[in-house]
Design a protein around this nucleic acid. Structure first.
Length: 418
DNA sequence: TCTGGGGTCCTAGGACCC
DNA sequence: TCTGGGGTCCTAGGACCC
């Protein structure tokens, strides 16, 4: 039988732990990172029911002595990177899932460093000693099992699932711990009397497919029966890049959405151009004040990355979406996303000159001109900072938005710039 | 007091092609 | 009178993850 060689390492209450590390006065106290919304809560705060994503007001209701901290986002990035680097000291087969979480396959390095369990214990000790942070680790034969094991291990623990005890380990755990089971699926399963992974495994695949759809049903069956073929993927390129902004409650008018879309298009396009990428599909999302949301998208023949082109298409799509919902007078969120991403080398600058006449459409030339102007602006910003230069039309009210540093934490690496 | 921001994947219907 | 069948792409919505 295959050995338990997969580790899942997950820093505990990461942002909150960093704040308690940096400021000893916060240690042992219930704290929340964020303000209007809780981005992370310490274990002391979680004990009161405070959760990430919760409004600050609600959190304060639950925990009157909750300390709010603004967040030290640069430190999160730095310490998260250092923790992952500890894993990489053991093996290059590390798959980073987010800023504070990664899988590692240690099958190739046990002869050097000991059993997977010993490696996991060393990783935990080193992260604690060198960085001062608690990290939980699960060790198992598959990614799914390792991830569940690390959740069970929290806080600050280590759980090893021996290959012989996998079914027993899973049997009484709640289905909500499984990857892919969120609130909706959990409720559907509950309606069928399915609460534990053991009960899920005992449910015929046919029933699950009927309840959840083919793909989701099959996937859940496989995981419940402990069939998880997923391998460690060390490098994964993003398939889309987007930006969004909550607006509170604003009139659904051009005066509101135009500057907001310029700002969002600028964020997304700049990220794409920095990696020599461009995308063919532009998607916008409009959320109304009752939280219902609609999306509109458009797929082009050729990829684009010029800010103004993305912005103009986004505006058209939002106009269309609002026209379809004439009774909605206010919006609470706008989002712009670019997908069908491909590499677009700087060569595109000269491309039209060497192309046959029929390819030199006015639109293409205009796109090149705008893209060139953007690249010039990118260069200025790189030297003098983001705020140094921008489109005159972009006077976007940013009072309510989260810090840019926080946004950047959530961004996936688009691709190493080849 | 309305609830952040960045992503992935799946489904279903329709257009279009061969 | 009668209508087949497979494949790909696009669009919109939704669930889920961190």
């Amino acid at each position: 039988m295959q050995q338990a060689n997969i580790l899942h390492a997950d820093l505990d209450a990461f942002y909150a732990s960093v704040e308690q590390l940096l400021n000893p006065e916060l240690r042992g106290k219930p704290i929340a990172v964020g303000g209007g919304v809780v981005l992370a809560a310490s274990y002391e705060a979680k004990a009161f029911g405070v959760r990430g994503g919760m409004s600050g007001r609600k959190a304060r209701e639950l925990c009157p002595h909750l300390h709010f901290v603004r967040g030290t986002f640069e430190q999160y990035q730095r310490l998260g990177d250092l923790a992952i680097a500890v894993l990489e000291d053991f093996t290059p087969a590390v798959e980073r899932i987010s800023i504070d979480e990664a899988f590692a396959d240690v099958s190739g390095c046990t002869h050097l460093f000991g059993t997977p369990g010993e490696i996991a214990a060393t990783i935990r000790r080193r992260v604690r000693e060198e960085l001062g942070l608690p990290i939980s680790v699960g060790v198992a034969r598959t990614k799914h099992l390792a991830k569940i094991a690390s959740q069970v291990a929290k806080p600050d623990g280590l759980v090893i699932v021996d290959p012989g005890s996998e079914r027993e380990f899973l049997h009484d755990l709640p289905v909500g711990l499984m990857w892919g089971v969120g609130p909706v699926t959990e409720a559907k399963l509950k309606d069928e009397g399915i609460f534990t992974i053991g009960q899920l495994a005992a449910t015929p695949g046919r029933s699950l497919r009927g309840l959840l759809g083919t793909a989701a049903g099959d996937k859940l069956s496989d995981l419940a029966w402990n069939r998880d073929p997923r391998a460690i993927v060390t490098e994964r390129r993003a398939r889309s890049a987007g930006a969004q902004s909550a607006l509170g409650r604003r009139p659904a008018t051009e005066a509101v959405f135009k500057p907001a879309l310029r700002h969002l298009a600028d964020r997304v396009s700049t990220r794409l151009r920095a990696k020599s990428l461009a995308g063919r599909t532009i998607t916008v999302r409009v959320r109304f004040s009752d939280m219902r949301a609609v999306t509109r998208s458009m797929t082009l023949d050729a990829p684009i990355s010029a800010t103004v082109m993305v912005a103009e298409i986004a505006e058209e799509l939002v106009r269309a979406a609002l026209a379809d919902h004439p009774r909605e007078k206010t919006i609470s969120l706008l989002a712009v996303s670019v997908s069908h991403i491909s590499e677009q080398a700087d060569i595109q600058l000269e491309l039209p000159l060497g192309l046959p006449d029929e390819k030199r459409r006015p639109g293409a030339r205009q796109g090149i001109a705008r893209w060139s102007a953007d690249r010039a602006m990118d260069a200025v910003r790189e030297r003098f900072g983001r705020e140094a230069v921008g489109y005159a039309a972009v006077h976007f009210d940013r009072r309510q938005t989260v810090p840019d540093a926080f946004r950047e934490l959530a961004e996936k690496n688009l691709l190493p710039d080849a």
